[in-house]
Simulated assay, not measured.
Amino acid sequence: MTLDLRIFTEPQQGATYDDVLAVARAAEDTGFNGFFRSDHYLSMGGDGGAGPTDAWTTLAGLARETSTIRLGTLVTSATFRLPGPLAIQVAGVDQMSGGRVELGLGAGWFEAEHTAYGIPFPPLGERFDRLEEQLAVITGLWDTEPGKTFSHKGTHYPITDSPALAKPVQPGGVPVIIGGGGKRRTPALAVRYAAEFNAPFVSADDAGRLFERVRAVAREAGREPSSMTMSAAQVVCVARDDATLRLRADAIGRDLEELRTNGLAGSPDAVVEKLATFEAAGAERLYLQVLDLSDLDHLADISDAVLRQLA
């Protein structure tokens, strides 16, 4: 099996920067290829603990306190930031990391976090319009040759004679990740702008159908489907013994049997077997959603018992 495994966290549930840093360093030390975080400003259940941390502020810190692991968002909401400043932020973090950053970008969906922090939340169609325009602006700024300027005649984000600075440092620019279950606009945007398409929290069969839809759109658009990485995201709960497994499920407030069905839960062998179904469906990368950020032994167990089997 050749799946690339990355760790994916949800710090808005209540995690300080130090908590996030500890998990990122543990992920790097135990051999995972990437550490990604959500971009949310409000917890989804529970009291939110210490409150949220800003995704790109956090990633800037991690860029200087890690050395090899890939870093990014799954995903930043287009409603949160203007595309010009976001392009500068991401390029800056890419420079700070030595070229290890990836940008997941989506339309936004969680209305409550917008009303909680005074962020406008337009209707779905307008959110997708804004996402599409943000992608055009961000990639256009990054792709503009040094010494030239970038302009964009947009409805929401018109740009006039931008110097298009700062620039990412990694060859080919910062990879863009687009995901979701949309039937029309999501695949089209992914094919046009993304290096990676992500199928979040669906079964292997459903992920396979989403992958094939994106590949079909790519062929229609004249893009080689193999030029895109296909990935999925699943919550993970692994242990060698049943008692530890149940403790880990309880710690994240999930029923173990439900997790076995809707996530990657069980013994290492059971999880490897389920990972194989995603690979068979076309996934090349899996984001393992780790919800208990205090359980660093969980990452070590996944590395020792799952990652090594894949290697």
Rank of each mutant, 00 (worst) to 15 (best):
A233R: 15
D269M: 04
L259Y: 08
I178S: 04
A166N: 13
N198G: 00
V235W: 12
A239N: 04
S231A: 07
I178C: 00
S203T: 14
E220G: 06
P158F: 11
P225G: 00
G181T: 12
G208T: 08
V217K: 01
R219Q: 13
V202E: 05
R192W: 05
P175L: 10
S162A: 09
A243C: 06
R209G: 11
G253F: 02
G181N: 12
N262P: 05
A195H: 00
G179W: 09
D269F: 09
L165S: 13
P175M: 07
T186N: 07
G182R: 11
L247Q: 15
A166R: 13
A164H: 06
A232K: 07
R240M: 12
P168Y: 01
E273K: 15
A199Y: 05
Y193E: 00
E273V: 10
T261R: 15
A218V: 07
M230T: 01
A232Y: 03
L165V: 15
A251I: 07
G208E: 04
M230P: 00
K167E: 03
D255N: 14
D206F: 12
R213H: 02
I252R: 07
S231M: 09
V235N: 12
S203D: 08
G172H: 03
S203I: 06
V174M: 00
L210Q: 14
E257T: 14
E257P: 03
E196T: 11
V176N: 03
G253A: 08
K167Q: 14
E224L: 14
E273Y: 13
L264Q: 04
E212R: 12
L189M: 08
A249P: 00
K167H: 10
G180P: 07
E224Y: 13
N262V: 12
R192N: 02
G222I: 06
P158C: 02
K167S: 01
G182V: 12
S267C: 06
A221W: 09
A216F: 06
A216R: 10
R254I: 12
